[in-house]
Design a protein around this nucleic acid. Sequence first.
DNA 1: ATCCCTGCAAAGGGTTTGCAGACGC
DNA 2: GCGTCTGCAAACCCTTTGCAGGGAT
Lengths: 156, 156
Amino acid sequence: MNTETKQAVEKILTDYLEKHGQRKTSERYAILSEIYSHEGHFDIEELYVFMKNKKYRVSRATLYNNIELLIDAGLVIKHQFGKNLAQFEKAYKYKQHDHLICSDCKKVFEFCDPRIMQIQSMAEDLLNFDIFHHSLNFFAKCRALKENGTCEHKKD
Amino acid sequence: MNTETKQAVEKILTDYLEKHGQRKTSERYAILSEIYSHEGHFDIEELYVFMKNKKYRVSRATLYNNIELLIDAGLVIKHQFGKNLAQFEKAYKYKQHDHLICSDCKKVFEFCDPRIMQIQSMAEDLLNFDIFHHSLNFFAKCRALKENGTCEHKKD
DNA sequence: ATCCCTGCAAAGGGTTTGCAGACGC
DNA sequence: GCGTCTGCAAACCCTTTGCAGGGAT
């Protein structure tokens, strides 16, 4: 990842840890760095394998503990795409977007629409809450599937 | 539940089973009836306990199998509210709505906003998919919490 | 009579917990 | 040195699977 982003997210983590009186362990910075060096979604097992394949001696328990911390610090976002498997994504400077999941091949697509923020404001005022996160998922069938018998995006 | 709804959902199930060459077992109709006799969200374990507390001899495996069938038939909707626990809800004649989850007490609130359908149309055309289901969840802090130190809706 | 569907129990897979040792403070 | 954080492994919980018996067609 670029140096600017690396420094920025490390500072956010440092500030968060200091504010909450938690320790600045090397594992926490290693996990953050690993997450920000990958594009797209990942689950804990994938992150574990990535880090094991490098020099890191890291445990799944530590990953589970610290991913929660990173979510709380606003550095990571958690997704649930219908399966019983939490998936994650880096959050810093990543444009707000939502997801569409292909029911055929389970591939996840991204899109964004500013109108979601208007709905959010409406819900906040209606229910008297402050919303800090949203999750919008569309489940869909590829139009090419019924015409050609195959997802046209499978070749990607 | 009212007789009209009961007959309507049973017909939908019957049509679905006949169309797919699947058997009309008493368990399937019992599960459907049980689901439609409750308001709000439920998970498989709750449904299992409900049915055990009545006369039914039913297994969790059958519930898991048939809830998928009912979802496919459009009679049940599945939700994931951030935890690794699938929650379900009856779908027939139930107005389209979305959810806001209180981060303090985890209570789930409902709201609806027609603009979600506009976003859906946009995403369909942008990505060339036909969307058959959507899931929009807001995660939020109750405004009364920071003022009074307690969720004002906890008394509900 | 066929064979799909069921109940039961064991297995599976992701996540959490307990504990002794390590390390930030 | 104190107390938190870590790695490891076992425990946990929800869900899926295997199998023999039962019921729909």
